[in-house]
Design a protein around this nucleic acid. Structure first.
Length: 221
DNA sequence: ACCACCTTGATTAGCGCTTT
DNA sequence: AAAGCGCTAATCAAGGTGGT
């Protein structure tokens, strides 16, 4: 059976029953006296019963009003208990966060990130999936991971890339190598050298091929 | 007569829904 | 997205009633 009143009406009822005076009761729930009068009137109309006997001197609960006030008091108490529990749950977050990440990020960034996260949310567990860039994206799209950390690239449909950090590439060589004394290097110069690359499934390899693709054809695997 | 209190009419503001 | 519309609830101001 639908009822055309809300919790505000019950709070109004509670206040008026407690104070027995429209002006004081209205003040206690931050309403004008006339607004409270209308609110009580609306509640009585919705219920189809008279809750209060009014004179210009006194406001008292009717017999029906006493019964209804007692029941609505139970309802409000239950509601307030539920709200208090909800508030407690929201402050006491628990659960599991799964992060798929490439090995370099897992090694360099994640330990500190996890340490700070655990300090803030001690009841939340963090699961790390340490894998190649391709597998990171696969873990995210399949729902295995909540989010992933990998190299930027062409995001597959249904995923979104947000930049976290910018990193630089460096060339690692022996002291006696001709490039050892150089401060910088172009992709063209780099391509003239023999170098050890990574497997094709590695995200770094894709980035490298993409960069070199702008100056020269990609090397065969 | 005066005061305190509740009710009522007029007006305004906020919100949600529908239409353009 | 913006405009129009209806509903709801608020305030203000005035009126009615009863006690002192």
């Amino acid at each position: 059976m639908p009822v055309n009143f809300d919790l505000n009406a019950l709070y109004a009822l509670r206040a008026l029953a407690e104070y027995g005076n429209f002006r004081i009761a209205a003040e206690s729930i931050c309403l004008s006296q006339s607004a409270l009068s209308r609110r009580i009137e609306k509640l009585e109309t919705a219920l189809g019963i008279k809750l209060f006997d009014r004179t210009t001197r006194r406001v008292t609960l009717t017999l029906y009003g006493q019964t209804f006030a007692a029941r609505s008091e139970q309802l409000l108490a239950n509601f307030e208990e539920v709200m208090a529990d909800s508030s407690k749950v929201s402050q006491d977050r628990t659960g599991l966060v799964t992060v798929a990440t490439v090995p370099s990020a897992a090694y360099y960034f994640m330990p500190d990130v996890i340490r700070r996260f655990q300090a803030r949310y001690p009841r939340v567990r963090v699961k790390i999936i340490d894998s190649s860039a391709g597998n990171v994206i696969e873990a995210v799209t399949s729902g295995q991971a909540d989010f992933g950390i990998c190299f930027s690239g062409n995001p597959p449909p249904g995923t979104e890339f947000l930049p976290l950090v910018e990193d630089v590439y460096v060339v690692a060589c022996r002291h006696d190598h001709p490039l050892a004394s150089r401060k910088g290097l172009t992709w063209q110069e780099f391509y003239q050298q023999d170098y050890v690359g990574l497997d094709k499934t590695a995200g770094n390899r894709n980035l490298l091929d993409s960069a070199l693709g702008h100056v020269v054809p990609a090397r065969p695997s």
